Amino acid sequence: MTDTPTSRATLDQVGASVTGFFQDLGCELLEYSPDRAVVALTLAPRHLNNAGNLHGGVTATLMDVAMGLCGTWTEQPEQRRVAITLSMNVNFSAPAAADSRVRAVARCRSGGHKTFMASCDLLDESDRLIAFGEGVFQRGALRSELP
């Protein structure tokens, strides 16, 4: 393991390899290190529910991606390991409105060779807790064909 911060180029490379909804939402990978990942999003109207607050599905997606990344770190970002979500729970604790910047801060709590458990807090720019949760994930094989 390393305590050296991950370079912006590596964060961009890993972030680009997280395909699908992560890209569509406009998420940004802020931290990626052994046992920790932080994903951020500035909320736009498309991220909100009918009450004008952060949509629960967006909340779950941010937390799912951050938790999946925190348990699949590799030193070589071109050899990414993917995570398969086996179970996940999300608890909502406060609303977040448009133009808020939220961060999903995930850490790997324990695990073995094939599975790991992670927890995540979703925080706003004032470190107010928006949501929290846990998940169980399966580590996939190393893959080099990701973008």
Rank of each mutant, 00 (worst) to 15 (best):
A141K: 13
H113I: 11
V14H: 04
R109D: 07
S87Y: 09
G26D: 04
L62H: 13
N53W: 15
C108R: 11
G111S: 03
V136H: 06
G26P: 05
S17D: 03
G56W: 06
D124L: 02
D99G: 01
A97E: 14
R128S: 05
F137Y: 15
G135I: 03
D35T: 01
S144R: 07
R81T: 15
Q76R: 06
E125I: 00
P95Y: 04
R80F: 15
A40W: 08
G112D: 02
H113S: 11
N49F: 15
H55Q: 10
A94K: 10
T72W: 05
T72M: 10
Q13V: 11
N89P: 06
K114S: 15
V18D: 02
A44V: 13
T42I: 04
S7K: 00
F132C: 03
R81V: 15
R81Y: 13
L86N: 10
S7D: 09
T2D: 02
Q79R: 09
P95Q: 01
R101M: 08
R81S: 14
T74W: 03
D121R: 11
A37K: 02
S33G: 12
E145Y: 06
D24A: 09
Y32H: 10
C27R: 12
D35M: 03
A66V: 12
T6N: 02
G52K: 03
L29A: 01
S144I: 11
D121K: 10
A16S: 10
T42Y: 08
M67P: 10
Q79D: 08
R81C: 15
V39I: 15
R139T: 12
A9R: 04
S144W: 04
L146W: 10
A83D: 00
S93A: 04
N91T: 09
R103V: 04
S33C: 03
F132P: 03
A118M: 03
C27D: 08
W73Q: 03
T6P: 06
T74E: 12
E145P: 00
S126F: 06
A94S: 11
R36W: 07
L54E: 10
Y32D: 02
E125Q: 13
F21I: 07
H113T: 15
Q23G: 02
R103Y: 07
G68Y: 09
F92R: 05
M88P: 07
R143H: 10
A104V: 06
D127I: 03
A98K: 11
R80L: 15
V18T: 08
A97R: 14
L122Q: 08
P77G: 02
L30W: 03
D121C: 04
V14P: 08
M88N: 00
L29N: 00
S87E: 12
A141R: 13
P147I: 01
S87Q: 09
V90A: 01
A131M: 06
S7E: 05
S144Q: 07
E75N: 02
L29T: 06
R103L: 08
P45R: 09
A141Q: 09
E28K: 09
S33Y: 01
K114R: 14
G56K: 01
G52A: 02
M117I: 14
L129F: 09
S126N: 14
Q23C: 02
R101I: 07
V14K: 00
A40P: 14
A98Q: 14
R109M: 07
D12F: 04
E145A: 02
A16H: 14
P95G: 14
L62G: 11
